[in-house]
Computed example of a mutant assay.
Amino acid sequence: MNDNSKVLLVDGMALLFRGFYATAYTGNFMINSKGIPTNGIYGFLNYFIDSIQTFSPSHVICCWDMGSKTFRSEIYDQYKSNRGEPPIELVPQFDLIKEVVEAFEVPNIGIKGYEADDCIGTLANHYSKEQDVLIVTGDQDMLQLVDKRVSVALMKKGTGNYDVHTHDTFHEQKGILPLQVIDLKGLMGDSSDNYPGVKGIGEKTALKLIKEFGSIDELLNNLDNVSKGIKKKIEENLEMLHLSRNLAKIHCEVPISCSLEDALWRMDNERVVTKLEDLEFKNVSRWMNKVI
């Protein structure tokens, strides 16, 4: 393995959903002659190919959620219960996008009972022992994975815009350490994942408390040193505080593996073009020219 190797871990669900909603709001579902909507796949490819072009990885892996039932929904049945069923136009694109990724000879990784985040965390931990790892996602939760050899590129609005967080810059950008993100989320909760944290404590207060005490455990050991109002809120929501911290923590010991040889970026142009033309995408050469 050469010193310039870089493993790109792609949060497939983040790219697909972002690609879908970027076009769906106009009602443009790009339905092909077989009656299959392809707008999510098209949007995914724009983001996916841009990340290859921007970060020039030596290896690429794409991770996926495998259904809504996970160990998190088992320990808290309201987890993500605020999310409705995926749009009917997106459903057929879930399987198709994996076929497209396969055409790029990029491994699709996912396992029932866990989220894509957990797969990414597990692989990042494994590969970063010897390689640099970059995670492309839209999910702030992934920031807890930043480490000496693990960086996280958060997708911003539009294509080609990333907020890259590295081990060297993280504290300066956020004011806390990567692993403290878990305790931060434990206190403030996460409305998008539908767990409340400590009711009445928002991001600003949670950040102040983590900066002051370093962790939830230290905060609980020093409750007499916080205001009566905050102490009361924490004591009344103690069970949910611990539960929220467990929900926020990315599980990095998922029973998955992927050899780096299988993840080597070595695109077969002909195979990719055949697949994209089968989906009836136009201007396929525009994408190909970006990653050749």
Results as ranks from 00 to 15, higher is better:
Ile201Ser: 06
Leu90Thr: 15
Glu102Met: 12
His167Met: 13
Pro87Asp: 15
Trp287Gly: 05
Ala153Asp: 13
Leu15Tyr: 12
Lys208Pro: 02
Tyr76Met: 06
Glu218Gln: 09
Ile97Cys: 11
Phe71Arg: 09
Arg18Met: 08
Leu143Ile: 00
Glu261Ile: 06
Ser73Pro: 08
Val226Asn: 06
Leu90Ser: 15
Thr159Ile: 15
Phe71Asp: 06
Cys252Met: 13
Asp132Gln: 14
Val272Glu: 03
Val136Ser: 05
Asn2Arg: 12
Asn289Gly: 08
Val100Phe: 08
Leu179Glu: 13
Asn161Leu: 12
His167Trp: 14
Lys208Leu: 07
Ile52Leu: 12
Met188Tyr: 00
Val284Thr: 01
Lys290Met: 13
Glu253Asn: 14
Asp77Tyr: 04
Tyr76Ser: 03
Gln131Ala: 00
Ile201Pro: 07
Tyr79Arg: 06
Gly67Ile: 05
Asp183Val: 11
Gly197Met: 03
Lys69Ala: 10
Ser81Val: 01
Ile41Tyr: 08
Asn237Lys: 02
Tyr79Trp: 05
Glu105Thr: 09
Ala103Tyr: 05
Asp190Ala: 02
Val100Gly: 07
Phe29Cys: 10
Gly35Thr: 10
Asn269Met: 06
Met142Lys: 14
Phe94Trp: 14
Phe94Ala: 15
Leu9Gln: 04
Leu143Ser: 00
Leu264Thr: 15
Tyr114Asp: 02
Thr23Lys: 13
Leu45Glu: 00
Ile88Ser: 15
Ile135Lys: 01
Asn269Tyr: 00
Glu89Pro: 10
Glu261Gln: 12
Leu8Gly: 08
Thr205Ile: 13
Ile201Met: 01
Arg286Glu: 04
Asp278Trp: 02
Val181Ile: 15
Ile182Glu: 02
Arg83Ser: 09
Arg266Val: 04
Val198Lys: 12
Glu102Ile: 01
Lys233Met: 10
Lys208Ala: 11
Ser215Val: 10
Arg18Tyr: 09
Pro178Glu: 07
Thr54Val: 10
Ile250Ala: 01
Phe44Asp: 01
Gly113Cys: 14
Pro196Ala: 08
Val284Gly: 04
Leu177Val: 01
Lys6Asp: 05
Ala22Asn: 14
Met155Arg: 02
Lys211Leu: 03
Ser151Met: 09
Cys119Asp: 02
Cys252Phe: 03
Ser73Asn: 11
Leu16Glu: 07
Phe55Cys: 13
Ile109Asp: 11
Ala22Asp: 15
Glu253His: 08
Lys157Cys: 00
Gln173Val: 11
Tyr79Ile: 08
Glu102Arg: 15
Glu89His: 15
Cys258Lys: 13
Ile292Phe: 00
Gly43Leu: 03
Ser56Trp: 04
Pro178Asn: 08
Val272Ile: 09
Gly214Asn: 03
Glu236Ile: 02
Lys157Phe: 01
Lys174Trp: 12
Asn269His: 00
Leu209Asn: 06
Ala248Thr: 03
Lys211Pro: 08
Val226Asp: 02
Leu134Phe: 06
Met188Trp: 00
Glu172His: 05
Pro196Glu: 04
Leu187Asp: 06
Val181Ala: 01
Asn46His: 07
Tyr114Ile: 01
Thr122Lys: 04
Tyr25Met: 13
Glu89Lys: 15
Asn32Arg: 14
